[in-house]
Structure formats: structure tokens, C-alpha cells
Design a binder for these strands. Structure first.
Lengths: 240, 240
DNA sequence: GAACTGCAAGAGCGGTGCTCTCTTTTGTGA
DNA sequence: TCACAAAAGAGAGCACCGCTCTTGCAGTTC
């Protein structure tokens, strides 16, 4: 069964037998690890089981990955990137002027990806593994969804908001919002960004409640609830 | 070191030596398990480690708990109940007429409990354990927070809402909302309940983002953000 | 061709959940 | 009072885990 690394990829670079074998094995490990993650979840991911499936001694895998955590890190990065891809593609398919459509498409992309990849979603948005500290290079992939949402918020005027705080924001919060808005595609009004951040948390709260079972027996089919939640968000933003 | 089960408790019932010892040991196991959970998280909870701390053979503990999962179940129930207690107490301390205050108190109780007991929070609101199915008797404790929030929503009039959907809700969603509203302290208007449910998910989304690290480096101090989020909720509900 | 490096295997360490058997302790009914 | 049953603890053992270390072989490079 062919997979991620095609013969084509392997032929291109002028690699020796050894380098080619290494590339192939890394790809195989990654593929099998993803399969196990999808089937058994992160706690069930076992270096020994992967080695077994590859017909290798478990110790051999430590030539490729320094630890199980390193394997987990790779899966985390891949998951963030898959979700990021899904959201970016869904949002990019919308008319630029259709702010509500872009928002809906992004949110549904998150939910759909999470429902299709529950264990991957759990890995990146569920309980943190107690001893595990996410390496620096997981940060960028992790921000992709927030970046898409921010780019949508950037197209919303303060005037359109139908939900806004009457009082001024505390200075500390203003600073945090400004620091956040800078890097993420241009300045965004603080009130818009505040509303957007809380809606961002709400989006993942809704998905987590649905996936982790909190909605069980109450909202067994969360489609309508999710859609209504988005409508509320868009109403608050004043774009529908 | 005395603990959960006091001598008083043990003296009351007319129990033989054996029954008293059993009660005491169950209490000890529970206490040590909670300690390990708080220190190492759910994945670090080990039957053998508990037995070691008690000076028992690990096999002996299986006279008291059929499996590690059963131990975990007890911790889950206790965690739900602790959180339920915290929220109920905080809410009960407010003036009945002060709907906004009751909402804020409940939400802050959730967040404060979660920050004080991150591993317990992760256990009940984080990734579900792949093979684990929550027994029936975990359901009631799990609904206590939602029950408190519902009791607050029940005191809010449809007229006061400043955020409402323009279109009618789909029939399927109306049915689900009605089914939910019935058992939870009296009928609640569907629009109020819908808004409340999404705010419920948002509350836990905010707390999870803060605790699980998604807000890291962006909102290192989430106090102001959380307060502002609640203000937005209360504004939408029209109670401030 | 020699030297060096990368790689695989196997044994082993300490840990896990859980089961089974054996022995001791305790409670109880005749 | 004493025998018997129930309960409890200990220990060995099974299959698994992450990870390390040593040994030997196979490519790579000079």
C-alpha cells in the first residue's frame, strides 16, 4: 500500500540507499502513528506497537524519534496544520465581501474537522498532558485558526456591532488586545476583537461540549444548535 | 494525620472491626487518589502507587475497587460535586433579584475552582479517556452547574434580551430546548435558553482556553478578559 | 581497503493494570 | 465453644509500557 512518501519524492533528491530508507521509515512511522492516534487516541499511542507493525524492534525506533513525546509533538503539529488547512481553505472559498459567510465557513470547518478527527482534536484542544511542554515550533501552527478568524474580524466595523460594552475596557485588557491585534493582519478595533476572542472561545467550547459528551442526551444532534450559535455571533457582530 | 473519615463517623454505626477498617481504608484510598490526581493528573494515577503509599500489596486494593477505572469514576463524581458545591454556594450567596450578580458569581466560581483544581477540571472537562464510558451515576453530579445556570435563566424575561435571532428557531432545536427546559426548574423561554446554552459553552471554552494554554502569551492574565466576557454575556441577556 | 557512521536487535530495568493462588484473620451460626 | 465460611492481604506472574545499553552488521567516506 503506497502512502505519504511517494516513489517520486524518494527519487528526486540524490540520496543514498540509507537516506532513502530513512525517509521512507520516517514516513511509515508517521502514517502508522496517525492511524493509531485516530483509532486509540493519544494515550493509546505506543512506540512498541508502532515498531511491531513495522516489523522492527522497539529500540530501533529510537534512532528516529528521541522519545514518545517527540512523536506526540509531531502529531500535534500535523493536527494543527490539518485543521489550519481545513479552515483556511473553507474561508478562502468565500466571497471577500461576505463576512458572515466567511465566519460560518470557518466555524463549520472547525467543527467538521473535529468531528472527523476526534482524537486529533482531543490531542490539541483537550486536556494537556501533565508532564508535556509544547515545544516552540508547535506555536505557529496553533495560531492558524485564530489568524483566519482575525482576518474576518478585521473586515468588521465598530459601528456595525450590535453587542458592545457600555463601559470602557480596563487598560490592561486594552493592552493585551492591542498586542494581539498587531501581528494578526492589521489593527482591529478593540471592541470587535474582544467580541471575536470570546466567540473564538465559544466556538471551541461548543465543539468540545459536543465531542466530549457534555451535550449528550440533551443535544444528541447538535447541528441546529451550532448553527443557531453562529447566528447569534453574527448578530452580535452585526453582519447579518 | 486525621482526614476525611473522622473517628466520629466511625463510631456512629454499629460496625465490627472489619467494617470499620474497610471504611477507613476506602477513605484513605480516596484521599491518596485525590492527592495523586492533584499532583500528577489523571494519567499519573496509579493503583500500585496508592497501594505503596498505604503499605499494601497492589492486589489487595482490588478487594475495594474493581479497576482503575472505578477509582477514576469516583474521582470524577467527587470533582463534579465539588464544582457543583462551589457554584451553588456562590450563587446562593447573592440576592435573588440580582440576576447579573448570580450569573457573575456562578461563572467566577467555575473559573476559580478550575484554576485551583486544574487536574480535576481536566478530568471532567478535558479529553475523554478513549476506552472509558461514564457510568450512569456520574450524570446527575455533572448537571449541577447547568442546573444553577438554568435557574438564573429562568428569572430572565424574553423582553429583556438585547441579542436575539431574527428568524424562528428550527423545530428540531425547539424540541431539544423544550426537553431541556422542562426538568431544569420550570419553563424557560426558548430564546433565553438558547442564548444561555451558548453562554454556558462559552464559559467553559474560556476556562479551558485559559487552563489548557491556548491563551498563553496572549492573555497571560485572563482576569480582565474573563470579566469582560461575562459583561458581554450579561449585556446580551439584558440584565446590566 | 580501512575507518567511521548509521542502524537494527536483544536483553534488561523499572514501571503499569490485573489475575490467580495461597494463607491468615475475622465474624458467625450451630 | 468451636467449626466453618467469608473477607482480606501477600506474592507470583502475565502482558504490556518507555527507554537504555551493548553487540554486531551494513553502508559511507576517505
Amino acid at each position: 500500500m503506497p502512502d505519504a512518501v511517494t516513489p517520486d519524492d524518494l527519487d528526486h533528491a540524490p540520496m543514498g540507499v540509507r537516506a532513502r530508507a530513512r525517509t521512507q521509515l520516517l514516513a511509515d512511522v508517521s502514517r502508522i502513528a496517525r492511524k493509531h492516534l485516530a483509532e486509540s487516541g493519544a494515550p493509546g499511542l505506543s512506540v512498541r506497537a508502532i515498531a511491531r507493525e513495522l516489523g522492527l524492534a522497539s529500540s530501533a525506533l529510537y534512532r528516529y524519534y528521541p522519545s514518545r513525546d517527540a512523536l506526540l509533538t509531531q502529531l500535534i503539529v500535523e493536527s494543527y496544520n490539518e485543521l489550519g488547512d481545513a479552515v483556511e481553505i473553507a474561508e478562502a472559498a468565500c466571497e471577500r465581501a461576505d463576512v458572515a459567510g466567511r465566519f460560518r465557513a470557518s466555524a463549520h470547518a472547525v467543527r467538521n474537522w473535529a468531528r472527523s478527527n476526534p482524537n486529533e482534536y482531543s490531542l490539541i484542544y483537550g486536556s494537556p498532558v501533565p508532564g508535556y511542554a509544547a515545544p516552540q515550533h508547535t506555536v505557529d501552527p496553533a495560531t492558524r485558526v485564530a489568524a483566519v478568524l482575525s482576518s474576518i474580524l478585521a473586515d468588521i466595523d465598530l459601528d456595525s456591532l450590535s453587542l458592545r460594552l457600555s463601559r470602557n475596557l480596563p487598560a490592561s485588557l486594552q493592552d493585551q488586545l492591542d498586542a494581539m491585534s498587531g501581528p494578526l493582519g492589521g489593527r482591529i478595533d478593540q471592541n470587535v476583537l474582544l467580541l471575536g476572542v470570546t466567540q473564538w472561545a465559544k466556538l471551541f467550547g461548543m465543539v468540545s461540549f459536543e465531542l466530549f459528551g457534555t451535550f449528550n442526551t440533551v443535544f444528541d444532534d447538535a447541528d441546529a444548535l451550532f448553527a443557531a450559535s453562529l447566528d447569534l455571533d453574527l448578530t452580535a457582530l452585526g453582519v447579518i
